[in-house]
Design a protein around this nucleic acid. Structure first.
Length: 276
DNA sequence: CGTTGAACCTGTTTGC
DNA sequence: TGCAAACAGGTTCAAC
């Protein structure tokens, strides 16, 4: 569910509603949802949320107590949600954390996750630095075109795999990898190193356009995704290829879209997205 | 180092 | 209808 655009939408709403709020109480449903920092939980009582950012697909909240910062990092995985009200979640049994807040526009923030592929991390500054360094490569919006060209040129593997590799470029998941490659007319199995500079230029533009447009439409809701206020995304209405195998190519080339089942599902047009 | 596939979980959809 | 298999937005680890 949550790839860069969805996380960006979440962060935007969190900033509007809970930035500056104080954490009165933290309720944890099951402790194994916390991958790091369980023993530091007590420290967070009374902290103020002074900054909220997206890093890759993670939400990073700065928690200040006096002048000391620590961080709460939420990883959503496939089914994770951060929401303001219980009405926004399908059921109560997968709520794993509730922050009770003072001084924000909403009284609480809930972390819900049915499949529990995502986790929570309570980190100090060095812990956060290590976490970010080990995990995330270039950011699609901060990376220059030259940096992106070097990255692609150094890739001996498949382009789809490169776009999904968070340590190389952070934030893109299966939906947007497919949509980006379709827009750039590049085959999911094209070898990065063999693409011309002109085609990498296309890809760089397609990546930023698709992600930007998806943010503008509130992300994609396939099933569970909601913004914190409960609003579903609308970008799924604009998907060109994702989960559309068997339908005609939207460019009108009369070819039927296909699905490759190696790795994770790749959806593409065999005519528009020629190899290499 | 790069690639592939399985594993981690739960829920929903599909097919017999 | 009933049940099993397939599949789902992600990450990580082992094996090659």
């Amino acid at each position: 569910m949550p790839e860069l655009p969805e996380v960006e939408v979440v962060v935007h709403q969190l900033r509007l509603h809970i930035l500056g709020a104080t954490v009165r109480k933290i309720w944890i449903g099951r402790e194994d949802i916390i991958r790091q920092g369980l023993s530091t939980l007590g420290w967070y009582q009374g902290v103020t949320l002074t900054d909220i950012q997206r890093c890759g697909k993670c939400i990073v909240m700065t928690c200040l107590r006096g002048t000391q910062p620590r961080y709460l990092v939420a990883e959503l995985g496939m089914t994770g949600l951060l929401v303001f009200h219980k009405q926004a979640i399908p059921d109560e049994k997968h709520t794993h954390m509730v922050l009770s807040l003072d001084g924000g526009r909403v009284p609480e923030l809930r972390y819900w996750n049915a499949r529990r592929f995502g986790r929570l991390y309570f980190l100090d500054q060095p812990g956060l630095d290590t976490f970010l360094r080990r995990r995330f490569g270039l950011d699609p919006f901060s990376a220059s075109e030259n940096q992106f060209v070097s990255l692609v040129k150094s890739c001996r593997g498949r382009m789809k795999a490169l776009l999904l590799n968070q340590q190389k470029i952070a934030g893109i998941g299966n939906i947007y990898a497919n949509e980006i490659l379709y827009r750039a007319r590049i085959h999911p199995h094209a070898q990065g190193a063999r693409l011309s500079k002109a085609r990498i230029h296309q890809l760089y533009g397609a990546m930023r356009e698709v992600l930007k447009e998806a943010i503008r439409y509130g992300g994609s809701t396939i099933r569970d995704f909601r913004a914190p206020d409960g609003t579903p995304g609308r970008f799924q209405e604009r998907h060109q290829v994702y989960q559309k195998a068997g339908l005609p190519c939207p460019r009108g080339c009369k070819t039927l879209l296909r699905r490759l089942v190696t790795e994770r599902s790749s959806f593409y047009c065999p005519t528009c997205q020629g190899r290499s």
